[in-house]
Design a binder for these strands. Structure first.
Length: 483
RNA sequence: GGCCCCAUGGUCAAGAGGUUAAGACGACGCCCUUUCACGGCGUAAUCGUGGGUUCAAUUCCCGCUGGGGUCACCA
């Protein structure tokens, strides 16, 4: 029987959750849960330069918000802690030294100046910059002498000079590269701290990680990882390299694009379920035709074979559409709860029924931030052109509209109890007695009352919301404007 | 530039050596409807390009083109 699946999400606390990152977390989580395994959170906070106050909370909050709950992590602990990389720093030196003993790594005393100079020369002559292995074959005596003299050193990986290295990726298959193209990368820095690549390999091994999901940018360093695992004699985890999320064909979705982070999207009025659902679909395709999935459904549906090899372009339209589906599926009370703050942004008057407005809005809202503009006519009737009254299909124009409004006004004035039902029957009996099409009366009324071409609801609903006095007032204004 | 990866409609994408080349978003058209929306129905791709292999390739191989990634004592 296979051992238990363990996956990990290992973000750097930058204070920003890119949706590509969140998607990686999602896939990582899904692979674990799909196989009844554990999802582990490891914070990679060793980059002090990039440290941002409160950034770890952004990670916690985002993950919790969308329901990606971790089984082990900094806050809840676990058997293979610590789960914050800065607290693990002391443990890497011994592993680097173990590799030196095995002849898989070596001490390097080259200083940064020499390396910079080397790089300059190589670049100038059009060669790919690589360490020239100056210290690779130092004698035991030389090494000892330097060590005794207290010279600073790093430990480098000893890459085979010949042959090829092949690693396996679950979506790309086998990938082979010439060892001669691989650099003798630094494992342990002069300050005794591990480099990212080295720490990653050791941490993943120590934490028993079985599947590594990471961005495609790591594909190029994967052979070096492969070699490291082999050097240690450790079992290599399964790799799943996922492609980037693009803004367009040649640019990755970046922070400045405004759609790039989970926080951006939340601010724009998207539902977290919709965002999670949409990003799952970016670079992954379900087997069937269904596209709307809850997190639990994703666990059932997800399969690595559906992952794409090509980058995917982020499509705000599609996100909107999916968000709209989630909004329509919301219980009306829930929708009202979300929508009312947005309605209040443009509706300040207090004599209108916000819940009623919300009910009208639900079927025609794709994103909450669209709401204020849809209901801005409620507080004040906007200026509008008489051309709004003209509708070829309704066969209305300025003349017929004036007539319609003049006929509708007294009928509406006579309504004692201003309810939607009463308005409806009053207007429809007028239509009937005149023997005209519904639109003959209703279209002009709606225009007069809203001043807009598109409104959330028809004439009857709008009148009911605005109240008798305001509705009649607006109709009178319409009559005046048309006269 | 070296190395690696990728390439089906505007976008996300399914797909198999021989199919009418799914579906979704968007677009367009029609229907429903008191507008818009919602809903329903329908329309639009020969699979980047040039060569192979094959009875047959969009599906396999090679070149080209295009795009992406990567080449730090950063993570």
């Amino acid at each position: 029987m296979d051992k238990k699946v363990r996956t990990r999400f290992a973000p750097s606390p930058t204070g920003y959750m890119h949706i590509g990152n969140l998607r990686t977390a999602l896939f990582t989580y899904l692979i674990a849960k799909k196989n009844g395994g554990d999802f582990i959170l490891r914070i990679e906070d060793t980059d002090r330069e990039r440290y941002v106050e409160g950034a770890v909370d952004v990670i916690y909050n985002t993950l919790r918000d969308v329901g990606l709950n971790w089984d082990e992590g900094p806050d809840i602990g676990g058997p293979v802690g610590p789960y914050v990389q800065s607290e693990r720093m002391g443990m890497f030196k011994q592993y680097a030294e173990e590799l030196v003993k095995k002849g898989e790594a070596y001490y390097c005393f080259c200083d940064k100046d020499r390396l910079a100079e080397l790089r300059d020369i190589q670049q100038a002559s059009g060669i790919t910059p690589m360490y020239d292995r100056h210290c690779r074959d130092l004698s035991q005596e030389e090494i000892q002498k330097n060590l005794d003299a207290g010279l600073p050193y790093v430990i480098r990986q000893k890459i085979p000079t010949e042959g090829t290295t092949t690693f396996h990726d679950e979506i790309y298959g086998d990938i082979t590269v010439e060892n001669s193209t691989l650099d003798d990368q630094i494992l342990l820095k002069a300050d005794g701290m591990p480099t990212y690549n080295f720490a990653n390999v050791v941490d993943d091994h120590l934490m028993g990680i079985t599947h590594v999901v990471r961005g495609n940018e790591y594909l190029a360093s994967a052979p070096k990882y492969e070699l490291l695992y082999k050097a240690f004699g450790w079992e290599v985890p399964k790799y799943i390299h996922v492609e980037h999320i693009m803004k367009d064909k040649q640019h990755k979705l970046a922070k400045r694009d405004g759609d790039a982070s989970y926080q951006d999207l939340m601010q724009k009025g998207y539902l977290k379920e919709a965002v999670l659902n949409y990003i799952a679909l970016l670079g992954w395709a379900p087997k069937g035709e269904e596209e709307i999935f809850s997190l639990d459904e994703l666990i059932k549906e997800f399969d690595i074979s559906g992952l794409s090899k090509a980058p995917a372009i982020f499509d705000p339209m599609k996100l909107k559409a999916i968000n709209g589906k989630y909004i329509k599926a919301l219980p009306p009370e829930k929708f009202a709860e979300y929508a009312i703050p947005y309605i209040k942004q443009s509706v300040k008057r207090e004599d209108v029924d916000l819940n009623k407005i919300a009910a009208l809005l639900q079927a025609r809202t794709e994103v909450f931030t669209d709401i204020p503009e849809q209901v801005d006519f409620i507080d004040t009737l906007p200026q509008y052109e008489n051309s709004l009254y003209c509708h070829k299909k309704m066969k209305t124009d300025e003349t017929t509209s004036l007539d319609a409004l003049q006929k509708a006004l007294p009928v509406l004035e006579s309504i004692a109890d201003w309810t939607e039902e009463n308005i409806h029957s009053a207007l429809f009996s007028l239509v009937e007695s005149l023997g005209v099409k519904n639109g003959y009366i209703l279209w002009p009324v709606r225009v007069a009352v809203s001043g807009k071409a598109f409104t959330p609801g028809g004439a009857v609903e709008l009148c009911a919301i605005l109240g008798k006095e305001d509705s009649l007032d607006r109709i009178r204004k319409g009559i005046a404007q048309l006269s």
